[in-house]
Design a protein around this nucleic acid. Sequence first.
DNA 1: TGTACATCAGTGAACGCGCGTTCACTGATGTAC
DNA 2: TGTACATCAGTGAACGCGCGTTCACTGATGTAC
Lengths: 206, 206
Amino acid sequence: MSKRRGYHHGNLREALVEAALDLIREKGPAGFTLSEAAKSAGVTPAAVYRHFAGREELIAEAARQGYEIFADLMEYAYDGGRPSALAAFEATGRAYLAFAQRHPGHYMAMFESGLSVNSAPELARAAHRAMGVLERAAEDLSRQIPAARRPPAGMFSAHIQAMSHGVVELFARNAPGAGSPFPPESLLETGIGIYLRGLGLIPPDE
Amino acid sequence: MSKRRGYHHGNLREALVEAALDLIREKGPAGFTLSEAAKSAGVTPAAVYRHFAGREELIAEAARQGYEIFADLMEYAYDGGRPSALAAFEATGRAYLAFAQRHPGHYMAMFESGLSVNSAPELARAAHRAMGVLERAAEDLSRQIPAARRPPAGMFSAHIQAMSHGVVELFARNAPGAGSPFPPESLLETGIGIYLRGLGLIPPDE
DNA sequence: TGTACATCAGTGAACGCGCGTTCACTGATGTAC
DNA sequence: TGTACATCAGTGAACGCGCGTTCACTGATGTAC
């Protein structure tokens, strides 16, 4: 952690963000303190103020980076709707969970810190980009549903978000419902599968 | 809040739990402090220690009471599977959301405080009872699915829990995804409806 | 290549604050006689 | 009904702690000449 070579750190800003992410992952967003982040970056708490206005801004930057990574992953998974709207949609679902598992600190900073997405414009922009992919995927896929039985795309995407977030919170961590006999990946995959079947997007017999 | 009539409070234990629930609802589980709970119950912080071993135990008691209320509501909604397994199941889904909305402090103490359900045996018992209702409802309903296409009941119930929790966290509060144009009740109701259709429990044409 | 100097990232001491927790105490309550 | 007394729920002062934040400072870096 403290790979400083002298008086100057070299890349303190990023080191602080990483320290914050580690702390958030280990103790939750509330357990994270500016002082401890500074300490684990090998620096005095006061040094933090050279790079951030305060504790809040440090968390916001961690969340922003999370939304950027998240958006990139979602876009990569969606891949412009290839090879099919259905496959691309399912890939974004898997990407959602994979992100939560691989970047728990980011995920918690984004969704559990109580941070308002509108506290900073770059944060809002990144969050909007990430959510936009999911909404687009839902829109593309929902066009395959006969218009009469088609739910609004926003509702469709909200369902998937809810299911994904629920699986992460309840079954992908040491949460209340943990100790479930099913791995979160298969829980989410089957859950989304059944849901899509309910929309007539997957044949009922398969 | 401070309806004390003299030196003795009369019902401090309950007053503290209620103060804790109010604080948790307003500031989140991390924002709640023992001192503030004592203050809003009109009492010195030291008085808390006549009734609780400390901060942690106070939160645990709030969560325990939440699980009891939750379990009662779920049992009432389930009503032994009447009038039908399907209707009873849908009622428990609605009860889940209604509980989260009507008892946000309890809900947060239960699911967002980072509290381990196994920190106290009465807490674990209450939590188990609550979750048992949902599992039983899922089991009863899943018996109506042809055995070949029937997912394990535990998975079924996990899906519903995930969707319900996700809707609460993302759309029933001022969370990141909030500002959704759909009220949480209808989000959950349609989400569960589509899911049940995917299981063949609701006819596709209805 | 060497020196003077501006820049600015970090130090370290200090602050006021609210926290959880402890302790000896006090005074209201309710029971025994 | 009245008095003595045990009980124990609450007080209030004190503690050590870590927090976020500020400030004047210092010393490493890198640029101009």
